[in-house]
């Protein structure tokens, strides 16, 4: 610790170094105690808040879904997770009230104007379309870049954004691209926001990279998602 940080004004009695260190040590212990206490008390509500925010987001991007299941997708395949393993989940499947698969929700991220933009999107494998989108985290400029969160015209892009897979190779046929506002002509293009070009392009990039990487894997394991519907809901 920095005992020397106080100005060295000459004093009548200079306390011993031991007393200085003891004081700082005592205060540090007290502070450690308080912090650990608060940490313990708040850990549960914080985890709950985060869980609830994520659940809300999953149901936003999968319109019509009534229940959901958690999965982890990696190199080895796709595994079903329990609710306690939420932190490891990176794929979410939503089911309607008959237990039919509505779609899967995946995350994507890209560097925007003010930092990382993380989005969650819902993909309907039957229609081969993105059917919903929400921003999980962004620090885009308020009033300009943060329009990617609530601009109605921009959000309309993600009601049915085509991402079809090539039947032969299983890869994405037409990668998503962001175009200038009003210039959208193809179903896989995103109509950008003028005045928020960097941010809307970041969204497009996040979706493109995530779909290129994950969709082929997800679609080839569709049975895993369909099967999970009967198990725990």
């Amino acid at each position: 610790m920095n005992e020397t940080s106080a100005p060295t004004i000459p004093e009548q009695v200079m306390p011993s170094p031991f007393r200085l260190i003891a004081t700082l040590g005592l205060i540090a212990m007290l502070s450690g105690f308080v912090i650990v206490l608060v940490y313990q008390i708040t850990a549960e509500p914080i985890a709950r808040n985060q869980r609830e925010a994520l659940e809300r987001a999953v149901f936003t991007v999968l319109p019509g879904a009534e229940s959901r299941a958690l999965f982890r997708a990696d190199e080895t395949g796709i595994t079903l997770l329990t609710d306690e393993e939420l932190a490891q989940a990176n794929v979410f499947a939503g089911y309607d009230n008959q237990g039919q698969l509505v779609g899967v929700a995946l995350t994507g991220s890209a560097r925007g104007y003010g930092g990382e933009v993380r989005v969650l999107y819902g993909y309907d494998p039957a229609a081969e379309k993105i059917i919903g989108y929400t921003v999980l985290q962004s620090s885009e400029t308020p009033g300009l870049g943060d329009k990617i969160e609530d601009d109605p015209n921009f959000l309309a892009n993600f009601e049915a954004l085509e991402v079809s897979l090539d039947p032969e190779t299983g890869e994405v046929a037409q990668p998503i691209v962001t175009v200038k506002e009003g210039a959208k002509t193809e179903p896989w293009e995103i109509d950008g926001i003028s005045g928020a070009t960097v941010s809307s392009e970041a969204v497009g990039r996040a979706l493109r990279e995530s779909t290129l990487e994950w969709l082929p894997r997800v679609v080839s394991h569709l049975d895993v998602f369909k099967q999970a519907a009967g198990e725990d809901h």
Binding site: M1, N2, S5, A28, S31, G32, I35, V36, Y39
Partner: peptide, 15 residues
Amino acid sequence: YLRLIAYIAVIASAV
């Protein structure tokens, strides 16, 4: 959870 305290101590010493 001790990050803030640790950082501030380091900065004070660096100054």
